[in-house]
Protein backbone atom coordinates (compact mmCIF):
# COMPACT_ATOMS: atom_id res chain seq x y z
CA UNK A 1 0.00 0.00 0.00
CA UNK A 2 1.23 3.49 -0.81
CA UNK A 3 1.67 6.07 1.91
CA UNK A 4 -0.46 8.67 0.16
CA UNK A 5 -3.26 7.90 -2.25
CA UNK A 6 -5.20 10.49 -4.20
CA UNK A 7 -8.16 9.10 -6.06
CA UNK A 8 -10.15 10.79 -8.80
CA UNK A 9 -10.12 14.21 -7.15
CA UNK A 10 -12.15 17.07 -8.60
CA UNK A 11 -11.96 20.68 -7.49
CA UNK A 12 -13.70 23.71 -8.94
CA UNK A 13 -13.03 27.20 -7.60
CA UNK A 14 -15.88 29.68 -7.97
CA UNK A 15 -15.29 32.63 -10.28
CA UNK A 16 -13.27 35.39 -8.66
CA UNK A 17 -15.23 38.20 -10.22
CA UNK A 18 -18.88 38.35 -11.04
CA UNK A 19 -19.37 37.15 -14.59
CA UNK A 20 -16.05 35.28 -14.56
CA UNK A 21 -15.64 31.62 -15.30
CA UNK A 22 -15.32 29.15 -12.44
CA UNK A 23 -11.87 27.55 -12.48
CA UNK A 24 -11.79 23.78 -12.85
CA UNK A 25 -8.45 23.31 -11.08
CA UNK A 26 -8.44 19.52 -10.76
CA UNK A 27 -10.30 17.27 -13.16
CA UNK A 28 -10.18 13.76 -11.83
CA UNK A 29 -6.62 13.52 -10.55
CA UNK A 30 -5.29 10.24 -9.20
CA UNK A 31 -1.83 9.53 -7.92
CA UNK A 32 0.02 7.78 -5.14
CA UNK A 33 3.21 8.49 -3.24
CA UNK A 34 5.21 5.59 -1.85
CA UNK A 35 6.97 5.59 1.48
CA UNK A 36 10.30 7.43 1.26
CA UNK A 37 10.11 8.38 -2.41
CA UNK A 38 9.98 11.73 -4.18
CA UNK A 39 7.12 12.16 -6.59
CA UNK A 40 7.43 15.36 -8.60
CA UNK A 41 4.36 17.08 -9.98
CA UNK A 42 5.35 19.29 -12.87
CA UNK A 43 3.20 21.72 -14.78
CA UNK A 44 2.91 25.36 -15.72
CA UNK A 45 1.19 28.13 -13.87
CA UNK A 46 -2.53 27.44 -13.75
CA UNK A 47 -2.11 23.72 -14.32
CA UNK A 48 -3.50 22.98 -10.85
CA UNK A 49 -0.27 21.61 -9.39
CA UNK A 50 -0.25 23.87 -6.31
CA UNK A 51 -3.91 23.07 -5.66
CA UNK A 52 -3.02 19.39 -5.83
CA UNK A 53 -0.28 19.87 -3.24
CA UNK A 54 -2.76 21.48 -0.85
CA UNK A 55 -5.44 18.91 -1.55
CA UNK A 56 -2.95 16.20 -0.59
CA UNK A 57 -2.79 17.77 2.88
CA UNK A 58 -6.48 18.67 2.97
CA UNK A 59 -5.70 22.33 3.25
CA UNK A 60 -8.26 22.60 0.49
CA UNK A 61 -11.39 20.46 0.56
CA UNK A 62 -12.14 18.49 -2.57
CA UNK A 63 -15.45 18.46 -4.45
CA UNK A 64 -15.26 14.73 -5.04
CA UNK A 65 -12.71 11.96 -4.78
CA UNK A 66 -10.62 10.78 -1.86
CA UNK A 67 -7.28 11.56 -0.28
CA UNK A 68 -5.81 8.88 2.00
CA UNK A 69 -2.65 8.82 4.05
CA UNK A 70 -1.69 5.49 5.54
CA UNK A 71 -5.11 4.22 4.49
CA UNK A 72 -6.89 6.88 6.55
CA UNK A 73 -9.30 9.05 4.61
CA UNK A 74 -8.50 12.73 5.26
CA UNK A 75 -11.84 13.82 3.85
CA UNK A 76 -13.91 12.11 6.54
CA UNK A 77 -11.71 13.09 9.49
CA UNK A 78 -13.17 15.48 12.06
CA UNK A 79 -11.27 18.68 12.78
CA UNK A 80 -9.44 17.36 15.87
CA UNK A 81 -8.31 14.12 14.31
CA UNK A 82 -7.15 16.03 11.23
CA UNK A 83 -5.14 18.44 13.36
CA UNK A 84 -3.43 15.55 15.11
CA UNK A 85 -2.77 13.92 11.76
CA UNK A 86 -0.88 17.04 10.63
CA UNK A 87 2.14 16.07 12.75
CA UNK A 88 2.68 13.38 10.15
CA UNK A 89 2.28 15.55 7.03
CA UNK A 90 3.83 18.95 6.47
CA UNK A 91 4.27 21.68 3.89
CA UNK A 92 7.20 23.77 2.69
CA UNK A 93 6.28 26.92 0.82
CA UNK A 94 7.42 28.65 -2.32
CA UNK A 95 7.68 32.03 -0.58
CA UNK A 96 9.95 31.52 2.43
CA UNK A 97 9.42 34.97 3.95
CA UNK A 98 5.65 35.08 3.55
CA UNK A 99 5.33 31.66 5.17
CA UNK A 100 6.92 32.84 8.43
CA UNK A 101 5.03 34.94 10.97
CA UNK A 102 6.96 38.24 10.80
CA UNK A 103 6.53 38.86 14.53
CA UNK A 104 7.60 35.49 15.84
CA UNK A 105 11.18 34.60 16.67
CA UNK A 106 12.71 31.90 14.49
CA UNK A 107 12.92 29.56 17.48
CA UNK A 108 9.24 30.04 18.28
CA UNK A 109 8.28 29.33 14.68
CA UNK A 110 10.22 26.08 14.64
CA UNK A 111 8.93 25.14 18.09
CA UNK A 112 5.29 25.47 17.12
CA UNK A 113 4.69 21.95 15.72
CA UNK A 114 6.16 20.46 18.92
CA UNK A 115 4.12 22.73 21.17
CA UNK A 116 1.02 21.66 19.30
CA UNK A 117 1.65 17.95 18.95
CA UNK A 118 3.94 17.10 21.86
CA UNK A 119 3.31 19.67 24.60
CA UNK A 120 4.18 17.03 27.19
CA UNK A 121 7.84 17.41 26.22
CA UNK A 122 8.10 20.59 28.27
CA UNK A 123 9.81 23.87 27.49
CA UNK A 124 13.36 22.73 28.13
CA UNK A 125 13.14 19.69 25.88
CA UNK A 126 11.35 21.64 23.14
CA UNK A 127 14.06 24.29 23.31
CA UNK A 128 16.74 21.64 23.00
CA UNK A 129 15.06 20.03 20.00
CA UNK A 130 14.51 23.37 18.28
CA UNK A 131 18.17 24.31 18.62
CA UNK A 132 19.37 20.97 17.35
CA UNK A 133 16.93 21.09 14.42
CA UNK A 134 18.16 24.56 13.49
CA UNK A 135 21.68 23.23 13.45
CA UNK A 136 20.52 20.25 11.44
CA UNK A 137 19.21 22.45 8.65
CA UNK A 138 22.44 24.45 8.64
CA UNK A 139 21.50 27.46 10.76
CA UNK A 140 23.43 28.71 13.80
CA UNK A 141 21.59 28.27 17.12
CA UNK A 142 21.88 32.00 17.73
CA UNK A 143 19.25 32.53 15.01
CA UNK A 144 16.58 31.25 17.39
CA UNK A 145 16.03 34.73 18.83
CA UNK A 146 15.95 36.56 15.49
CA UNK A 147 12.97 37.67 13.47
CA UNK A 148 12.34 36.28 9.95
CA UNK A 149 12.98 39.69 8.37
CA UNK A 150 16.58 39.61 9.57
CA UNK A 151 17.39 36.49 7.51
CA UNK A 152 18.25 36.00 3.84
CA UNK A 153 15.90 34.10 1.53
CA UNK A 154 17.90 30.90 1.71
CA UNK A 155 18.05 31.07 5.51
CA UNK A 156 14.31 31.71 5.70
CA UNK A 157 13.69 28.63 3.62
CA UNK A 158 15.87 26.60 5.98
CA UNK A 159 13.63 27.80 8.80
CA UNK A 160 10.59 26.66 6.82
CA UNK A 161 12.20 23.27 6.37
CA UNK A 162 13.10 23.03 10.06
CA UNK A 163 9.47 23.72 10.98
CA UNK A 164 8.32 21.05 8.54
CA UNK A 165 10.60 18.29 9.77
CA UNK A 166 10.69 18.86 13.54
CA UNK A 167 7.56 16.76 14.14
CA UNK A 168 9.16 13.95 12.06
CA UNK A 169 6.46 13.73 9.40
CA UNK A 170 6.46 10.85 6.96
CA UNK A 171 5.01 12.96 4.16
CA UNK A 172 6.03 16.48 3.12
CA UNK A 173 4.63 18.56 0.28
CA UNK A 174 7.30 20.83 -1.18
CA UNK A 175 5.58 23.59 -3.13
CA UNK A 176 8.25 25.05 -5.44
CA UNK A 177 10.63 25.23 -2.49
CA UNK A 178 13.51 26.69 -4.48
CA UNK A 179 11.96 28.73 -7.26
CA UNK A 180 12.31 32.05 -5.43
CA UNK A 181 15.94 31.42 -4.48
CA UNK A 182 19.22 32.22 -6.18
CA UNK A 183 20.95 29.50 -8.18
CA UNK A 184 23.76 28.56 -5.82
CA UNK A 185 21.38 28.59 -2.84
CA UNK A 186 18.87 26.50 -4.76
CA UNK A 187 21.38 23.68 -5.04
CA UNK A 188 22.17 23.83 -1.32
CA UNK A 189 18.50 23.67 -0.35
CA UNK A 190 17.85 20.75 -2.69
CA UNK A 191 20.83 18.92 -1.26
CA UNK A 192 19.57 19.57 2.27
CA UNK A 193 16.12 18.25 1.40
CA UNK A 194 17.61 15.11 -0.13
CA UNK A 195 19.80 14.54 2.90
CA UNK A 196 16.89 14.95 5.33
CA UNK A 197 14.77 12.62 3.24
CA UNK A 198 17.37 9.90 3.43
CA UNK A 199 17.86 10.40 7.14
CA UNK A 200 14.21 10.38 8.15
CA UNK A 201 12.85 8.40 5.17
CA UNK A 202 10.18 10.95 4.37
CA UNK A 203 8.07 10.87 1.23
CA UNK A 204 8.07 14.11 -0.80
CA UNK A 205 5.46 15.47 -3.15
CA UNK A 206 7.63 17.95 -5.01
CA UNK A 207 5.59 20.54 -6.90
CA UNK A 208 7.62 22.39 -9.52
CA UNK A 209 7.61 24.03 -12.93
CA UNK A 210 11.29 23.48 -13.54
CA UNK A 211 12.26 20.37 -15.47
CA UNK A 212 15.93 20.64 -14.49
CA UNK A 213 15.17 20.61 -10.77
CA UNK A 214 12.63 17.84 -11.07
CA UNK A 215 14.98 15.64 -13.02
CA UNK A 216 17.57 16.20 -10.36
CA UNK A 217 15.54 15.28 -7.32
CA UNK A 218 12.63 12.99 -8.19
CA UNK A 219 12.11 9.26 -8.41
CA UNK A 220 8.91 9.57 -10.40
CA UNK A 221 7.25 12.45 -12.23
CA UNK A 222 3.59 13.26 -12.79
CA UNK A 223 2.97 15.80 -15.55
CA UNK A 224 -0.04 18.07 -15.07
CA UNK A 225 -1.74 19.94 -17.83
CA UNK A 226 -4.95 21.97 -17.45
CA UNK A 227 -6.03 20.19 -14.28
CA UNK A 228 -5.25 16.68 -15.39
CA UNK A 229 -2.32 14.37 -14.95
CA UNK A 230 -1.38 13.45 -18.48
CA UNK A 231 1.55 11.16 -17.75
CA UNK A 232 3.20 9.56 -14.70
CA UNK A 233 6.47 7.70 -15.05
CA UNK A 234 9.76 6.98 -13.35
CA UNK A 235 12.00 10.00 -13.95
CA UNK A 236 14.50 8.40 -16.29
CA UNK A 237 11.80 6.83 -18.41
CA UNK A 238 9.88 10.07 -18.73
CA UNK A 239 12.94 11.93 -19.95
CA UNK A 240 13.99 9.17 -22.34
CA UNK A 241 10.57 8.45 -23.79
CA UNK A 242 8.00 11.16 -23.15
CA UNK A 243 4.66 10.00 -24.49
CA UNK A 244 2.19 12.82 -24.17
CA UNK A 245 2.66 15.75 -26.56
CA UNK A 246 2.58 18.17 -23.64
CA UNK A 247 5.44 16.34 -21.93
CA UNK A 248 7.34 16.45 -25.19
CA UNK A 249 6.71 20.18 -25.43
CA UNK A 250 7.92 20.74 -21.89
CA UNK A 251 11.05 18.74 -22.50
CA UNK A 252 11.80 20.52 -25.73
CA UNK A 253 11.51 23.90 -24.04
CA UNK A 254 14.28 23.05 -21.58
CA UNK A 255 17.32 25.25 -21.99
CA UNK A 256 20.51 23.36 -21.33
CA UNK A 257 23.28 25.36 -19.68
CA UNK A 258 25.65 23.60 -22.04
CA UNK A 259 25.84 25.54 -25.32
CA UNK A 260 26.88 22.36 -27.12
CA UNK A 261 23.42 20.94 -26.60
CA UNK A 262 21.04 23.23 -28.48
CA UNK A 263 17.46 22.91 -27.34
CA UNK A 264 14.89 21.18 -29.47
CA UNK A 265 12.07 23.60 -28.96
CA UNK A 266 11.62 24.06 -32.71
CA UNK A 267 9.34 21.03 -32.43
CA UNK A 268 6.37 23.35 -32.04
CA UNK A 269 7.75 26.48 -33.60
CA UNK A 270 4.92 26.56 -36.10
CA UNK A 271 2.37 27.00 -33.33
CA UNK A 272 1.68 30.27 -31.67
CA UNK A 273 0.72 28.91 -28.26
CA UNK A 274 1.54 25.90 -26.16
CA UNK A 275 -2.07 24.87 -26.33
CA UNK A 276 -1.90 24.95 -30.09
CA UNK A 277 1.16 22.79 -30.04
CA UNK A 278 -0.41 20.25 -27.73
CA UNK A 279 -3.78 20.08 -29.35
CA UNK A 280 -2.68 19.99 -32.97
CA UNK A 281 -0.29 17.17 -32.43
CA UNK A 282 -1.31 13.54 -32.19
CA UNK A 283 -0.02 11.67 -29.17
CA UNK A 284 2.92 9.57 -30.23
Amino acid sequence: MSLVEIEDVHKVFPARQRGGEPVHALKGVSLHVNEGETLAVIGESGSGKSTLGRVALRLIDVDSGAVRIDGKDLGTMDANTLRRQRADMQLVFQEPFESLNPRMAIGAIVAEPLQIHQPQLGTTEIRRQVLSTLEHVGLPQSFADRLPGELSGGQQQRVGIARAIISRPRFVVLDEPTSSLDLSIRAQILALLAELQREYSMAYLFVSHDMHTVEWVSDRIAVMYLGEIVETKPTRELFDAPEHPYTQTLLSARLSPDPREPHAYKAFAGHKTVRDAVENQEPA
Partner: peptide, 17 residues
Protein backbone atom coordinates in the same frame (compact mmCIF):
# COMPACT_ATOMS: atom_id res chain seq x y z
CA UNK B 1 -5.13 34.70 3.23
CA UNK B 2 -1.46 35.02 4.09
CA UNK B 3 1.00 32.18 3.78
CA UNK B 4 2.05 32.08 7.41
CA UNK B 5 -1.53 31.52 8.53
CA UNK B 6 -1.77 28.70 6.03
CA UNK B 7 1.51 27.42 7.44
CA UNK B 8 0.05 27.45 10.96
CA UNK B 9 -3.00 25.54 9.75
CA UNK B 10 -0.79 23.04 7.95
CA UNK B 11 1.17 22.55 11.15
CA UNK B 12 -2.04 21.62 12.97
CA UNK B 13 -2.62 24.80 14.97
CA UNK B 14 -6.10 25.15 16.46
CA UNK B 15 -8.30 28.12 15.47
CA UNK B 16 -7.73 29.54 18.96
CA UNK B 17 -3.97 29.31 18.58
Amino acid sequence: ESRFIEAATATGASPRR
